[in-house]
């Protein structure tokens, strides 16, 4: 299912029936029909085309933001878990501070200071999830460090970099990837929420959160404009969640407690 969604999003530019940003005053606010499967919005733009293009944005945001959080969080977590001591203390206190902001607040704070833009949205959402990634990575690392094969590597005189990259990381990857796949859904939802309140994607982008926000005044007359992206988003998130659950079941049944 996720595969289909991703394929649809990637292929969106080629398969969409209409230009997602082209205005067509003659066909405004049309209900779903054979010509426009999901109807049109107040500027006569085809809702289906916009949703397909929006899918690319949403999924892209989800994966990119997660990648940001992994890139920052995994090295810090590995280091904190392996070295302990001052580094660990410092990194964890930093996480405490970041975690003391409710997730949206942190995004707000970052986006509030500069004009909104997509790449900022990605970084903001990514940073929100850095502390969680650090903590998970550290917890997993601590568990692996206590294993005897790490001691065996030290006994034969391996360098720290080798132990971190070749002995610890491959074993830590499974839980981190599983967690990251669920993180993607949070990122999609958070990104949409930020766009919804006007701090994320900007018009005329066809981001789903933005679409829902724009369609609110028309809820009485044209509910499909708001409902369609909502359903699309629900479908996407459920698909990613199922993927995550699948990964989790394959990799490690014990992982439940890390969530």
């Amino acid at each position: 299912m996720l595969g289909v969604l991703i394929a649809l999003s990637l292929l969106a530019p080629f398969i969409i029936p209409y230009d997602p940003v082209a205005l067509d005053i003659t066909s405004r606010l049309q209900p779903p029909s054979t010509a426009h499967w999901l109807g049109t919005d107040e500027y006569g733009r085809d809702v289906l085309s916009r949703i397909l293009m929006g899918g690319k944005l949403s999924l892209g945001l989800g994966f990119a933001a997660t990648a940001v959080s992994l890139l920052l969080g995994v090295p810090l977590g590995l280091w904190a878990g392996y070295r302990g001591g001052r580094y660990e203390e410092l990194i964890l206190r930093g996480c405490d501070v970041l975690m003391s902001f409710p997730p949206i607040m942190l995004g707000l704070l970052i986006l509030a200071v500069t004009p909104p833009a997509m790449w900022k949205l990605i970084i903001a959402v990514g940073i929100v999830y850095v502390p969680a990634t650090v903590r998970l990575t550290r917890a997993v690392t601590l568990e692996i460090v206590s294993e005897e094969f790490i001691l065996a590597a030290r006994v034969r005189g391996e360098r720290n970099s080798y132990i971190l990259l070749k002995e610890i990381l491959p074993n830590a990857m499974a839980p981190i990837v599983v967690e990251a796949s669920l993180r993607v859904t949070f990122a999609i939802l958070l990104g949409a929420a930020l766009s919804f309140i006007g701090l994320g994607a900007q018009p005329p982008s066809s981001d789903w959160g933005l679409m829902i926000s724009e369609a609110r005044p028309l809820l009485d007359s044209a509910p499909w404009i708001a409902l369609a992206p909502g359903f699309a988003m629900g479908l996407t998130v459920i698909a990613v969640n199922l993927l995550g659950d699948g990964l989790r079941a394959t990799f490690d049944p014990k992982l439940r407690r890390h969530n």
């Binding site: 005897e148 065996a152 006994v155 034969r156 005189g157 491959p170 074993n171």
Partner: peptide, 27 residues
Amino acid sequence: TEAELTDLRSKTQMVFQNPDSSLNPRR
């Protein structure tokens, strides 16, 4: 320091208690 221990590291070794934990499961 670790750098000064190369000789010791090759000439001394260790056999561990727990067979499940003493080998890297991904290798």
